[in-house]
Simulated assay, not measured.
Amino acid sequence: MPTSAPADQTGDPEVVHQLFETVRAEVGKVIVGQDEIVRLLLLSLFARGHCLLVGVPGLAKTLLVRTLAQTLDLSFGRIQFTPDLMPSDILGSELLHEHEQRLQFEFKPGPVFTNLLLADEINRTPPKTQAALLEAMQERSVTTAGKSRPLPNPFLVVATQNPIEQEGTYPLPEAQLDRFMFSLHLDYPSREEEIEIVRRTTYESEPQAGKTIGAAQILQADELLRALPVSEHVLGYAVDLVKATRPGSVNAPSVTNDFVEWGAGPRASQYLILGAKAMALFNGRPTPEISDVREVALPVLRHRVIGNYRATGEGKSSSDILREILKIVPEPVY
């Protein structure tokens, strides 16, 4: 059985690094491959940031999130987004019932009241229902019948999207995309990984992941993460990188002015630093470096940089544009 460190030791970066490796090993008992996706997903969860998973059907997106909830000992909820889904199906509703011969309203919580929420195929529901998650993701509370109700702590949303089916879908607005810390794109497994997947899933009993840590340790790790000091040159590099995605801004490179319609906002700079802190913490280091910022740049920025008609015509994705920007923006000398 996996063991976890005592809760009062989670303030040590080396202990957090060991916990992270323990969690990753447990997830690996169920999920084959996708090591980078698992690592970045854990980074966002430990930083209490929401995550968007993009991938074709059959890549174990749902299984991955459910396994994480089981390994982290978190309550888990799943919502299958459909065109007829209503906001009350997510948030909950007031029900009229009789109590001591009197009629009164009682709030019945929806599936959003959980630690880890899987929003499956989030782009299959209309904007009105998508917006029901906005307050929950930003404020970690929901308002129903004029009353604000706090969500469990931690509260994390992992949403999935299918990139190949566009009929009957409602693209997420930029305001909601900006609520996600990371956008992670899953790819097909290698031949060896697919053989192992088939081997594991065609026996009578499939492997199960054990519990490692709990919500209290996740919150303690998040407190440590936010307390990590960041050098001025690292802060400056993160801001320069984000500003380089904004067309028309000072020092914007030509690739941005030529191919970008809208660049990333200040929340991207915040998430770059939070992601870099998490990367440093999970490597047992007490402060992030420039390399940590560069490692999380693509998942933080790719859904915040919107290409223009020229980028579409030349087949340039936001990831392509960002890779060029990463080559152009100079690393600070200190």
Rank of each mutant, 00 (worst) to 15 (best):
P154W: 10
I328D: 14
Q138W: 06
T144S: 12
A311P: 15
G214M: 06
V296S: 02
I321F: 14
E223F: 06
L235W: 11
P150V: 11
T22H: 01
F81Y: 07
E193W: 07
A25Y: 12
A7T: 11
R102L: 03
T169G: 00
V250Q: 10
P247A: 00
L19Q: 01
Q138A: 10
K108Y: 11
Y309C: 13
F81H: 04
H50E: 10
R140Q: 10
A132R: 01
L281W: 00
A136K: 07
S205N: 15
L177H: 09
S317I: 06
F282R: 01
A227L: 04
D178S: 03
D89T: 05
T114E: 07
D187C: 12
A47L: 06
Q220M: 03
E193D: 12
E121I: 11
Q101G: 11
L116H: 09
G146P: 07
F113R: 05
I213E: 06
H233F: 03
M1Y: 14
S93W: 12
A221R: 00
K243F: 06
N123A: 04
D89A: 04
P13T: 00
I328L: 14
P266W: 10
P111N: 02
V16E: 01
T312P: 15
S88Y: 06
L59G: 06
E192T: 13
I37T: 02
P173N: 05
T202P: 14
A159S: 09
T82N: 05
P229N: 01
I290Q: 07
V329Q: 09
R285L: 00
V296C: 01
E174F: 10
E193P: 04
I31S: 04
T125N: 02
L68W: 09
E135K: 05
E36D: 13
V56I: 11
I37Q: 08
L272D: 04
A5N: 11
